[in-house]
Design a protein around this nucleic acid. Structure first.
Length: 207
DNA sequence: TGCCAGGCCGGGT
DNA sequence: ACCCGGCATGGC
């Protein structure tokens, strides 16, 4: 686990996450990408931008247009509900102002986000890490799969367990967490898909 | 062509 | 406390 990062970085280079023009766009993307291919999410985001709704107030006021716009990202009826819940929270609590949100401690924001319908641990942590640059390690399906296939963790570990594992190994540096998670997703996409056997080509494999 | 993608919720045991 | 079905589209 300690040696994984340099190997991944050497192999794949910087991943430039999160691809977005604003922090708000990152948060919207975090919801839209739930169990969804990023390519589909990009179409939805493009639609939102073209409609000039990539901003909290206007997105909320025009929420009736959301179904058609985010349809390509799948699960779209649920996601409209999720975005609306998030917008209501963000607008009522912080006036849709990132500067206000950024003043709050990480733990407080995380709790608030987890309290929003449709935002679970991964989505909350993605927002914290990639929109607010907080040193929070994001655990996703690839991370679980990679760690369990390499027998570093077992599949039964909870989200919080696995996150604690990283926190014990590494100092909380957001740039590093940012790149590390992105690299895990990158290697997972190529070498660790759902039904793949343990892969002999995997750059993480111990030789 | 079927299978999968950067989860989460709610109801059932 | 876990387990599982539902949610939906587009790409390969």
């Amino acid at each position: 686990m300690r040696t994984a990062y340099p190997r991944l970085y050497e192999r794949f280079g910087p991943q430039r996450w999160w691809p977005a023009e604003s922090r708000f766009e990152v948060m919207v993307g975090a919801v839209l990408t739930q169990n969804t291919n990023w390519r589909n999410v990009e179409q939805a985001i493009t639609n939102l931008k073209k409609a000039r709704l990539m901003n909290p107030e206007r997105m909320y006021l025009n929420r009736r247009r959301l179904p058609a716009l985010i349809k390509p990202s799948g699960f779209y009826r649920q996601k409209v509900k999720k975005l609306t819940a998030f917008l209501k929270y963000f607008l009522s609590r912080y006036r849709g102002d990132l500067r206000r949100l950024k003043r709050r401690p990480t733990g407080v924001i995380r709790k608030e986000l987890l309290n929003v319908w449709g935002i679970g641990p991964e989505t909350a942590d993605s927002m914290l890490l990639y929109a607010l640059n907080r040193p929070v390690f994001v655990i996703d399906a690839y991370t679980r799969r990679i760690l369990s296939r390499h027998r570093i963790a077992n599949a039964a570990m909870t989200y919080d367990n696995m996150q604690a594992l990283f926190n014990r190994c590494f100092k909380p540096v957001s740039r590093f967490y940012n790149e590390y998670h992105a690299l895990l997703v990158r290697v997972g996409k190529t070498y660790c898909k759902k039904h793949d056997p343990v892969c002999t080509e995997c750059p993480l494999r111990r030789s």
